[in-house]
Write a protein that binds this DNA or RNA. Structure first.
Lengths: 123, 123
DNA sequence: ATTACATATGAGCAATCATCGATATGTTTC
DNA sequence: GAAACATATCGATGATTGCTCATATGTAAT
């Protein structure tokens, strides 16, 4: 309660915000659903295991077992993450006999990784 | 244990993976630290509130109160997220009197958002 | 100094999540 | 059909996290 009072009052005193009436701010806001979808996608990349999986698949198609071996992780954990990434249409499957090959479903991932790696290196 | 047995055995039978000896896979893997740092960055973008904050700041510098108002959230919650994003050098501060203006510390975010929004729209 | 404002911080709680172990499904070979 | 293999799924658990409430810090005006 004391917070909303504070906010009301600030509308009159905040420097720099006179130029922004509420209407203008609304216009520049991202809509809720898009924000959630964006966040869901980013969160999918927000785990070291999934980063490693995607990075490996950036270079070549791999089967579950090979990913599991490469990461030194249990097959179950890897399979869970693969399903997770597939549900978000980041990965796709290709079945050959009993083996399932995973690969990227989209070529945006490469650019996203490149940009983010640049952000890391810089500064 | 039964899992590693399964993995050993698969090395001989997995189709398509004959071309990948362990050494080659190692070479194409991302190193652990980089994976963690990448994941940390992505996780920072993996929340609707933070997405909204960054999206708003993509267009203009804003003070804490204005962000708080725009998102319809408590000042404390916003302040916490701002600190979080600042620690990862995604945002920077500029102080004017009692007001603190936040803005992006880097111009990579725009590209990252553009690419990821494209991934969303497509398919 | 006192009051009001703007932001920052700390503790606690509910919810989410990554992993593991065990088991299930699907496929090939014998 | 039975056995072996590859992957998928289920349940449980420890760890992380986003928010709220309360309070602290810093700044400006009277």
């Amino acid at each position: 309660m004391s917070q909303s009072d504070m906010q009301e009052a600030c509308d009159d005193t905040c420097q720099g915000s006179e130029a922004l009436d509420a209407a203008r701010l609304e216009d520049k806001m991202i809509d809720d659903q898009t924000a959630v979808e964006l966040a869901d996608l980013f969160r999918a990349l927000g785990d070291p295991t999934r980063v490693k999986i995607i990075y490996a698949l950036l270079q070549q198609e791999l089967c579950v077992h090979d990913i599991s071996t490469a990461l030194g992780m249990g097959q179950s954990a890897v399979s869970h993450q693969l399903r997770y990434l597939r549900n978000l249409r980041i990965l796709k499957r290709r079945k050959v006999g009993k083996t399932v090959f995973y690969s990227l479903d989209d070529d945006h991932m490469e650019q996203i990784f490149v940009q983010t790696l640049q952000h890391l290196k810089h500064e």
